[in-house]
Design a protein around this nucleic acid. Structure first.
Lengths: 224, 224
DNA sequence: CGACAGATTGATATTCGTCAACAAACGTGG
DNA sequence: CCACGTTTGTTGACGAATATCAATCTGTCG
């Protein structure tokens, strides 16, 4: 796999790919040093940690808030090659968890230096990732604001398809509950709208996780 | 005024102040060079600009998307001392506008250098601001997702109170329409919930813009 | 095969957006 | 200072969208 920074598709509602725009920073292809694996639903990092930067080697992670009343808000998903970190927030606990069995590379400033990333280079790398994620978080907020349930599901499927390579078929790593907490809907509403999309012939669902997009253009038109 | 970077309270739903955490970068206290003033509702920068960084000297600005269907989404407000910039986004036009008569300082990379901010220093400055805004954008998205209209208005008022100095009374610079576009509600819903808060005795409203928080703790409890 | 978590479907309640009317504040010109 | 028109904000009635609650179904994994 490519270990360069690929924040593209980090937010499921972000643009297709931003690998082209701007420089692509390369993480060191070191041996297994700082490589860690996590089981499904296991926490990778929490809000109280000092700033460490991770990259998904294989698997899938979710970045989430846990609000005081027990509600959960998923801020972003990250797939293979994508970079993430954990930062304290003013409300609720913040954590990154494995959606399925996941392996990550872990870097901190000192280790980054050890591998040849000097201070400014490391900062530039972090900054690029931060700017990407900022754009995506803003788009996510805008999406929550002005799209209805049906449009959100369409946008979500299109974005996940892009993340999965854009082939039109994919195995969603996340559950309906994950989708609900990411789109700000309930699992029932997510389910109803997936069913509606299938009935309209825009997608095909096999099992619970495999989804095939029959007419991408119609889905794109429906997303807003 | 203090011309150091103060992204604290940039998002109306962010924590009270983050001036303490991390380094505070200093903008050059140059003469009137690159100082610009704008009238109410005037555009300060648009989506097609190259990356320029601004700091509010006096006044108040809003950062907004204009969606294809004519709707407007306010991403963030920025008050005195706060840093902002404009960055292209995948959907809709992005712009920063003056909420009221506003004066800003404008910096671009070259000018930053001229004033003694070398490349890495400039990057560090930008990076700090980006990280702050990322946190705030994520909180904003979370708020849109899982809070109802009443909770959003409570959170908005508390955050604006923090930005205004936390004294419990403030003159809101923005209109109901601005609040609506920031919270993802309609002006009617904003108005109804402000009235409800006043009827419950949590706030007092004088004129259209002046708001006094009677019981901050109750408001904090109501925000979720 | 059986048990259990996850997903779907249906009935109902609630919230918020829409439309409409009205009220208050503001600005302008006399 | 007032009169007027315009903008902005408030309030009410109603309907549509989505959450909630409940029952059932399906897939997965031991």
């Amino acid at each position: 796999m490519n270990l360069s920074i690929a924040t593209s598709g980090t937010s499921a509602f972000a643009r297709a790919s931003n690998m082209m725009d701007g420089q692509v920073y390369q993480f060191p292809r070191s041996p297994a040093l700082c490589r860690e694996s996590f089981a499904r639903d296991e926490q990778i990092c929490g809000g109280t940690d000092t700033l460490r930067v991770y990259q998904v080697v294989s698997g899938f992670v979710r970045q989430c808030h846990f609000l005081a009343d027990g509600r959960r808000q998923i801020i972003a998903f990250h797939g293979e090659g994508e970079v993430f970190w954990c930062r304290n927030n003013s409300f609720g606990a913040l954590a990154v968890e494995a959606v399925c069995p996941t392996t990550v590379m872990c870097f901190n400033k000192r280790e980054g230096d050890l591998h040849g990333l000097t201070g400014p280079a490391w900062l530039a790398l972090l900054h690029q990732a931060a700017m990407e994620q900022l754009t995506q978080a803003q788009e996510h907020a805008a999406m929550m604001c002005h799209r209805n349930a049906f449009e959100r599901i369409c946008a979500f499927l299109l974005a996940e398809n892009r993340r999965a390579g854009g082939r039109g078929s994919m195995n969603l790593p996340m559950s309906r509950a994950d989708i609900a907490d990411y789109t700000g809907l309930t699992i029932e509403t997510v389910s109803r709208n997936l069913t509606r999309l299938e009935q309209q012939g825009l997608i095909r669902i096999s099992g619970q996780r495999f989804i095939e997009i029959v007419t991408p253009s119609a889905l794109a038109a429906a997303q807003s």
